[in-house]
Design a protein around this nucleic acid. Structure first.
Lengths: 248, 248
DNA sequence: CGTGACCTTGAAAGCCTTCAACTCGGGTGG
DNA sequence: CCACCCGAGTTGAAGGCTTTCAAGGTCACG
């Protein structure tokens, strides 16, 4: 059930201790980070691993929320739909990120894999039981939840008060920062999602996203090596746009 | 220091036990709800009460986050600013709501009173110390944080994918629900905030908000008793708009 | 009764969307 | 092996929803 790579990494790090998952304890935005080895061992007992192919569904809005999970490999989009099919992407999540936390019994949004994705899943009911013993879990989940809240509030400002160029640049800089945070190079910025996904994240249309890429490229703010690889050429201009320094 | 009304309500509920605050333990979105009497007593030791006049500032984005707090009376707006002054209101909070939770050492947004407001404040450092003894606190804060996250995601859909009418109707219905949740009548819907505040919440301009009110009124979806009191006349139409049933 | 803040309304302008055509690259089947 | 097809992305032109600019109205307050 547990992936060989997981076992390998784990034995390096924790000796023979059964681990929650290899990626988790090394990364920032996971349940496991900040837990003690023996607490990790407790967690490990209830963990299962899962693989989801590119474009596969992790879960859907309204489904019973049976697991919370860490992404240990790949990339995921989270989204909500309106009745007539309009879609708003709430965020993208990558290796090391944590998803699936809900207030009620059901997921509040849908999640789909952008690329082949590996998950480390914790059954909610069993995690619930562990809470009594592992106080740090609630503390940790609270930290993660607040981080997510702050990021969502930033997204709110983007959607409510930024124009198309500012939105796209903000998004690119965010992706670049996320790459650095998980130990990858900051450049080029990799876009594992489609233009449609970007549009639904930024509250724009595919065409506007495309045109805005072109405009930024022509002005020398960014360079597009290909559709999915971006470099920031004029960082000062980019950061001014993202910060909303009034057309400056 | 503790308000007389607080004391009166408290003695009714908890006998002579010193309470964290009267409103808190009766309301949903507070730290205190779901705590045991003796835990409340612990909390009470670190509590202070504060009054903020209408339009007064509770705290500003970037300030050291010294307190988390419950609103026990009044209404508050939370907002963030862009460098050039554009403003996005993140949400409105009312009696019974909880604010000020942050990941880092500083507030992530600013908070201003819409009306005269009373607060029940918990110094963060001392709350921190209590965490070791009162496990339920983290659990409770987690619940509150997740609720807030879900509400913010809903706001994201509103800003990213709804048109002006849908935004305004969604907002009105939300306010109505909030009134019911805190035990007030669902109608009329009371608007303690200005048109400018509504605009900055909905990602629109004052003029568009005003025109949209007029349009909804003319179509018979709502009635405006005066600037600050709204009734929903055609609930089916209103809910269809809010749900985004494609121009239905 | 003047003043100012807030709200509403009108007209013109602008940014983004919609509709449409075209390019490019990969997969497929003849 | 290559024509064909399809999805994804780009670009152009027209249209629409919201913004901007401007003016007028109402009410509280000095």
């Amino acid at each position: 059930m547990v992936h060989p790579e997981t076992l390998r990494l784990v034995s390096q790090r924790l000796g023979s201790l059964p681990p929650p998952c290899a990626a988790c304890d090394a990364r920032e935005r996971t349940v496991c980070a900040a837990l003690e080895p023996q607490e990790l061992a407790e967690l490990a007992r209830i963990l299962t691993e899962a693989e989801v192919p590119a474009h596969g569904t992790l879960f859907r809005e309204g489904e019973p929320a049976e697991h919370v999970m860490n992404i240990t490999r790949g990339a995921v989009k989270l989204y909500r739909l309106l009745a007539d099919g309009r879609r708003q992407i709430l965020g993208f999540r990558f290796a090391g990120d944590f998803i699936g936390l809900t207030a009620g019994a059901e997921y509040a949004y849908s999640a789909e894999a952008l690329t082949a994705t590996r998950l480390c899943r914790f059954p909610r009911r069993r995690l619930e039981a562990l809470r009594e013993r592992l106080r740090r879990i609630d503390r940790r989940l609270l930290e993660l939840s607040i981080d997510e809240l702050v990021a969502t509030q930033e997204h709110l400002v983007l959607l409510g008060r930024k124009d198309a160029e500012e939105r796209l640049v903000s998004f690119l800089l965010l992706l670049g920062q996320a790459q650095v945070r998980r130990g990858e190079p900051g450049e080029p910025i990799v876009l594992p999602m489609s233009r449609g996904d970007i549009a639904d994240y930024l509250g724009l249309t595919i065409e506007t996203v495309s045109r805005t890429f072109t405009a930024l490229r022509r002005r020398g703010v960014i360079a597009l090596d290909d559709t999915t690889h971006v470099r920031v050429l004029d960082r000062a201009a980019a950061e001014a746009l993202a910060a909303g320094t009034g057309s400056g």
